[in-house]
Design a protein around this nucleic acid. Sequence first.
DNA 1: CGGGAATTTGACACTCCTCAACACACGTGG
DNA 2: CCACGTGTGTTGAGGAGTGTCAAATTCCCG
Lengths: 253, 253
Amino acid sequence: MKAMLHAATSGAPDIRARGHCLDCAIRQHAVCSDCSAPELEFLTNLKTYRNYKPGERLLEMGERAPFMGTVVEGVASMSRILPDGRRQVVGLLFPGDLVGRPFSPVSPFDYVSVTDLRVCAFNRPQFEAALRDTPALEQRLLEMTLDELDSAREWMVLLGRKSAQEKLCSFMVMAAQRALRLERRRPMDGILIELPLTREDMADFLGLTIETVSRQIGALKKSGVIELIDARHLLIPSWEALEEAAGGELAAA
Amino acid sequence: MKAMLHAATSGAPDIRARGHCLDCAIRQHAVCSDCSAPELEFLTNLKTYRNYKPGERLLEMGERAPFMGTVVEGVASMSRILPDGRRQVVGLLFPGDLVGRPFSPVSPFDYVSVTDLRVCAFNRPQFEAALRDTPALEQRLLEMTLDELDSAREWMVLLGRKSAQEKLCSFMVMAAQRALRLERRRPMDGILIELPLTREDMADFLGLTIETVSRQIGALKKSGVIELIDARHLLIPSWEALEEAAGGELAAA
DNA sequence: CGGGAATTTGACACTCCTCAACACACGTGG
DNA sequence: CCACGTGTGTTGAGGAGTGTCAAATTCCCG
């Protein structure tokens, strides 16, 4: 819970451009999914890739954000730290999700990589100009933003009203849904879930402490809702039982 | 009240069209703020006004939403109720705010009036067509949605990490900011705040119980951060002290 | 193998919830 | 006019669920 962001904003992440937008594996999930071939051609020439190690800060709350982009590989978090060090994660970014706040030069949250991460990045003014000039881009951004807003509000239900145990189950449901969607698969019994976050990140996402997270995972294991492979991998014998234990109401984000 | 919430969506609220968009007092805050005179002319002919008493449900979670609109007067809430009855308010709608989820025929949340309420309403398909055909409308909607997303995430920080007392103070700060913005005024010492919600709605918005809300308001009064006029009205001797007690980080929404 | 981080476990404290009773304002009808 | 019901808000006693602090354990990687 205490803010332990190890490295300062990295001055020069590993940057290199390669690959063409047409070949992008996650384009269908991204803001550029509805762009025409010529529009993609244009974007291809603007983009650069940025790679990060876990724990690096891509953008800092309250600071100028030099770029925007899309997660290509890995997971990142958006979070805020209160003056006394309490931290709340307000969103997880999976492949296809947008990094940065469009039309605001200053980032309203910290963006931090939680796994090895690759981001398809654009110079901010150029990206915003592209947004203004490309209806396909702007309409898709609107669509994505409306979906994110629904998700954020669902998470508010979790934070405000769910028990620690329900929070953990909801998180597992969400993590599984996000991972499966990328592979165009559906949840089912016996499925394997990877938890991409440390206990600390989970705690900060769920509004709990790491000790409570650890204990509730133990309780879920004992009650048979999950089977632990190791600290980061688990098996779901019954998807329905997991959803039941999550306290209901988790629409696919 | 319980009975009202559980009653079906009111079939025929008080509907009448009057007034012209050009004369609308809250247009500058609404989705139509950037529309040209001809565009407003078009919208004027589509709109109808709907009036509600406190506690009426405008739209129901999971049901077809026949209209969308803008709050003209009063306050409404968006909320979700878990299967076992726990309720979380995920947003408050002040004049200018949008009622309904664009591009989704089904409402993801309950919309309930919390005061006497007037809504400028549009038939959903017509409104969505107008959005698609009117860049000024769509761009403004994107802007508003991005702002709402920032606000929702700030509220997640409150729900996940703030104490009951900090939640109350944050709510007062937010309520004051929203009310003042409509009058183009700034927060200052000695200001009067109206709490438009019942203790129950406040509790459901803050992730607390009504008893805790009541007790914390009492504690704030005793410590001098607020002065109670009556149950719904209070005075802020020091705005800075209130923000301090709110635990920091509340950007104007 | 060694050292630090991540995770788990334990004992205890505290915030906030639960249940219950009470106070108050308001409207209705006898 | 007053008794009554209903919705709203306050107050009190006690307990459940999480947080806090401390230590043990496991994992990871050089």
